[in-house]
Simulated assay, not measured.
Amino acid sequence: MIRAVLALALVMAPTPSGDLDQTVDPGQVQASGRAVLETGHVDIGPRLHDGKWTIQIHDDHAVPSVWRDPAETVLRVRDTAELQVPDDESYAFLGSAPGETVHVVPQTEKPGVVWIGWNTQDPAVMAAISRGVTLNLRGVQGPGAVTVFLQSGNLGAPRVLWSSAKPYPQPLWVETNTHTHANWVFAKTGTYLLAVDVTADLADGSTATARTILRLAVGDSTDPADAFGATFTGPLPSAPVSPAAVAAPAAAGSNALLFVAIAVIATLLLVAALVWRQSTVRRRAGDTR
């Protein structure tokens, strides 16, 4: 069990910043035909191409890199991604018992495991959007729980971004020119469909939304053909989530901190004034003796 804990901690360590430095070539082509991606670097993200907003998969494992349509792409998570859930309350949010085997696409790249992230680095997107986009999980269909979380260091508390155990929609604010990787945990083997959308407030004042279904085949025993043929049949929220609504809580939190800081400073100044006044009174009392 100690080995399992160490293994999980190692693959969920933060990604070195240098590994996230990338530039997307505006001339990268749109690939055609079906593809099964089971190793190497891929990112999910918005793409503005020929005036049309879409969510696509940026396949950086291909040489040269290409964009792929999620409808024609299966992300295959092989058994090389298997890990045991540690006996640690910090990971109770996964919903799996300690010792259970799960498939983990880690925050840091692992040989033999597809490395799934997201980016807002399409040059046309960066030129069109105002501040960022909302990447929103609308639903999950599959044999087990799906959890996506970040962890900033082995001792840092996990930050859950998406969880199939929580109500939908689940919006995630992503700044312009962002490239991020997180931990993706799948509780069971089988075919998974993730319904996602991206909404952007554009610099011209309008709003753009695109939707897609991400297809994943988890486990060596899962045939990617099943993922290609699967259809999302569950209910989905209809209205997109506004980027302004997602970004607002962070701004409100910043204002709250500012007000607290002002209150603390005012209190300190008041205390200092009282101490100075008492000191002055005492000196004057000493002068009259």
Rank of each mutant, 00 (worst) to 15 (best):
V218R: 03
G51D: 03
R284Q: 11
Q30T: 10
T189S: 13
L257C: 09
S163A: 08
S90W: 06
F228C: 07
A272R: 12
G286N: 02
R34E: 02
L257K: 13
S238Y: 07
G18D: 06
A266R: 10
A225H: 06
A124L: 11
T178L: 02
L257P: 01
T207M: 00
W184K: 08
D287T: 15
A182E: 10
G27I: 05
G33T: 00
E109T: 14
V125W: 03
S65Q: 13
F186R: 01
S242F: 01
G205V: 03
I44M: 03
W162H: 07
A285R: 15
L172W: 01
A225K: 12
H103E: 03
W53I: 02
D60W: 10
W118A: 12
V196D: 03
K52Q: 11
A285Q: 15
A245R: 10
Q141W: 02
H61Y: 14
T191L: 01
P171V: 02
I55P: 07
S254Y: 11
V77M: 02
T147M: 04
L48T: 11
E82R: 15
A127P: 01
N177T: 08
R68C: 09
N255R: 14
A4L: 00
L155T: 14
G219A: 04
E72A: 11
S242R: 05
L37G: 02
V275L: 08
S221M: 08
P243K: 06
A7I: 00
Q121Y: 14
G132S: 03
D197K: 00
P111A: 15
D59F: 07
H41A: 00
T147F: 01
G253N: 01
W162A: 00
A203Y: 09
E100C: 14
G229I: 08
D220Q: 05
W67Y: 08
R78S: 14
G40V: 02
L194I: 12
A266C: 14
